[in-house]
């Protein structure tokens, strides 16, 4: 188990290193000099040079990469080209909208998909199964931001159960924050739940055909007991993979959904930064997103080992 964790940890570090290198390189290709962009066309050469030194732009590429990564590790993300404020502060404020939204949606998606998948698998070929499968077929096809617009139309504008947009902030209390994120989370979660439910169902159906399920029946377990005691945990193994993959979709999705609900999250920040060519902000936000995805996949790897004893001993 320890070996397995160490191995996954090593692969996590390599992934992060390579990802940071890729992001840095791409941003380096970007045409234009941030310093002249910040100071405008009429800037004096001396001021320009001073700013370049201040921003660390005249160092070599390797030095700049190392100082950027070093900064990331110590929480110093650099200074925004447009706002002249530390990027870390800008991101920190927005992060607490986007990440909770993605996790909230992941939770909802799992809570909806599991019962739906199990229900459908247990009633394979019957009306209940066909109903769930039809609904998921539709759910998979719905773009989440469009679904979000429809939710706003129904629940905010017509029923007035939720605010149509904006975010009250966590300082108004945990439940107020959760309430504000509920519609966006539902919009994000339902399409993903549809996928997850389908995976859960087919994974369970695969497991139902396994020999050990028949062995369990031969012991005198009922179909239901067999499903719960032997089927579920085995079916979970492929489902975990999908949950890990879904987190990256949910995080990306939350950036899009923020546009529908005017949420002050990473999405707004990054789109503003793109139009202002504030590349250092773009760079840091992208790194943060990729970092979160890699961490979640690491957690999924650990969950694998918890579910499957064969992984623990093999490693």
């Amino acid at each position: 188990m320890v070996r397995y964790m160490l191995k996954r940890l090593a692969s996590l570090c390599i992934s992060l290193a390579v990802a940071s290198l890729v992001i840095f390189t791409v941003i380096e290709i970007a045409p234009g000099d941030p310093a002249s962009f910040m100071l405008g066309i009429n800037a004096q050469p001396e001021t320009l040079a001073a700013l370049r030194t201040e921003l660390g732009l005249d160092a070599s590429k390797v030095e700049r990469y190392l100082s950027w990564v070093g900064g990331l590790l110590t929480g110093d993300f650099g200074i925004s080209y447009t706002y002249r404020t530390p990027v870390a502060g800008m991101i920190a404020a927005r992060m607490w909208v986007s990440l909770p939204l993605a996790f909230y949606a992941l939770l909802l998606s799992t809570l909806i998909a599991f019962p739906a998948g199990v229900f459908a698998a247990a009633r394979r070929g019957k009306v209940g199964d066909m109903g769930v499968m039809g609904a998921t077929q539709l759910g998979v096809a719905v773009p989440n931001f469009w679904f979000a617009m429809m939710l706003v139309l129904v629940f905010s504008i017509n029923l007035r159960w939720f605010a149509a947009g904006g975010f009250v902030g966590w300082d108004k209390g945990f439940w107020a924050g959760v309430h504000a994120l509920t519609l966006p989370a539902i919009a994000l979660a339902l399409p993903q739940a549809a996928i997850l439910a389908r995976v859960m169902r087919s994974s369970l159906l695969d497991v139902l055909g396994e020999d050990y399920m028949r062995t369990a029946r031969a012991k005198g377990l009922t179909t239901r007991q067999t499903l719960w005691r032997h089927g579920l945990r085995n079916a979970l193994i492929p489902v975990l993979t999908i949950i890990g993959l879904q987190f990256s979709f949910l995080l990306a999705g939350s950036i899009i959904i923020e546009q529908v609900f005017y949420l002050p999250g990473l999405g707004r920040l990054v789109f503003q930064a793109i139009s202002a060519r504030d590349l250092i902000v773009v760079e840091s936000v992208v790194m943060l997103l990729v970092f979160s995805v890699i961490i979640v996949n690491f957690l999924v790897d650990l969950a694998y080992a918890a579910v499957d004893p064969r992984l623990r001993s093999r490693a």
């Binding site: 020999d211 062995t215 005198g220 377990l221």
Partner: peptide, 25 residues
């Protein structure tokens, strides 16, 4: 329901493929 009470209790069964007949987890 009655069959479940008989299987494993009054009739036991052994299968061909021992590699897959046990729950791996």
């Amino acid at each position: 329901k009655d069959l479940c009470g008989i299987r494993g209790n009054e009739i036991g069964m052994v299968f061909q493929e021992p590699m897959t007949a046990l729950n791996p987890v």
